[in-house]
Amino acid sequence: MKILVPVKRVVDYNVKVRVKADNSGVDLANVKMALNPFCEIAVEEAVRLKEKGIASEIVVVSVGPAAAQEQLRTALALGADRAVLIESADELGSLAVAKLLKALVDKEQPQLVILGKQAIDSDNNQTGQMLAALSGFAQGTFASRLEIADERATVTREIDGGLQTVSLALPAIVTTDLRLNEPRYASLPNIMKAKKKPLETVTPDALGVSTASTVKILKVEAPAARSAGIKVGSVAELVEKLKNEAKVI
């Protein structure tokens, strides 16, 4: 079974981003970039399925700038077999990304597509669901457990009240939540080996996909700052303040 794993290059999760002075976006110059944490979990899950003998090939794909090759190499070092970069200098919306991925799904015919549930930059949480709609596949979002058997995927999903389990016909889309697995670190030999694995670059035009968007970002601002309050010396003082000053209890 072939697994497709779309991944995104994003700002490292430890970086606290700052809004640009002209409000055109956030300042990403000289900021550490990384594989989106949820995408890392997606790669790990695919690799584990290959180690179990369920998957035969893992193809990673990223839609992004040329520099996203770095994140594709990371995914290859974690165990993916080959990579495709759909190169786009523009920051694309989730629908455009889903359309590009749909074109790749048509070409590669994977039985399973595993994606992160959201990217920690745009926080959209849309791409997997949109790709499922465009491909006509079933979807198991926010997965904390995945099992493949008898041509079906059984997915346990993290939902607001607890957990839900669904059974999906393959091919299917799965999006990862935090508890699905703990990604491994790439070993040095694997990092070296990854440099030799195939990485193909294509353009949206070559895939015949229009990336036009119906959404425009007008401006990006810093959120209203919350100022630090006071330190209280004792529990008694805390309770007194909550009762008489804040009046919340």
């Binding site: 989730s94 629908l95 949480n125 791409t127 949109m130 709609a133 926010f142 993290e158 607001d160 959404v215």
Partner: peptide
Amino acid sequence: ATTNGKNVLPRVAALLDVDQISE
């Protein structure tokens, strides 16, 4: 923007061929 809304609405947006604005 509950887990239910997040699960189904992007699928609706894609079927309508429009972008979704989340949260």
